[in-house]
């Protein structure tokens, strides 16, 4: 898996209420997603393009367990999230839903830089600046989930194996 995209840069502690605001939580995903991150950057949901990459600081996704925080980003076409560190539930949710999430404390970027991300290898290349960074490894159980394409396909495979046995 190789992902290439333009990055949008955010600060520390981007929370799940910013990603999936409560007042829209009972609404269908497209409506919810149109408010994604508006409390931090009102233009983001309008301007983000399919394949873009979100880059952020520490504690990305802190707060609620709501998976809509991940699904809103997926709906908007975000291909990966790279952060200094992640909140624990968001990190699991992202990889379970097939949104690559990579912790890369060393990453140096400017907004709009072109990045190439290789989740399984744990590598990021900043194509605009000609620099390369190593990410923290993804825990083995989640790597298996990523390889299967998410937790649902992983569960399907596991159930099929059980039925076959």
């Amino acid at each position: 898996m190789i992902l290439r995209g333009r990055c949008h840069v955010f600060g520390d502690q981007v929370d799940t209420d910013a990603l999936a605001p409560g007042p829209y939580m009972r609404k269908p995903l497209p409506e919810l997603a149109s408010h994604c991150l508006e409390a931090v950057d009102p233009r983001f949901a309008r301007e983000v393009q399919r394949g873009d990459i979100v880059v952020a600081g520490r504690g990305f996704g802190i707060g609620s367990s709501r998976e809509q925080a991940v699904q809103a980003l997926l709906h908007l076409g975000v291909a990966a999230v790279v952060a200094t560190s992640f909140a624990r539930i968001f990190y699991r949710n992202a990889l379970n839903l097939g949104l690559p999430a990579l912790a890369c404390p060393a990453l140096v970027v400017r907004a709009g830089d072109e990045l190439e991300v290789r989740p399984q290898q744990g590598e990021i290349e900043n194509l605009s600046q000609g620099t390369r960074f190593a990410c923290e490894p993804i825990p083995a159980p989640l790597l298996a989930v990523v390889a299967a394409g998410g937790l649902m396909p992983w569960l399907e495979a596991r159930l099929a194996a059980r039925r076959g046995a």
Binding site: E67, R92, N93, N96, P141, L151, L155, R158
Partner: peptide, 20 residues
């Protein structure tokens, strides 16, 4: 521990979850 809805589905099916 708290988890998201996909992992809740995983627990509902398997009765298990991985923890570091």
């Amino acid at each position: 521990v708290g988890v998201g809805a996909t992992e809740v589905t995983g627990v509902l099916v398997t009765g298990e979850i991985w923890i570091k």
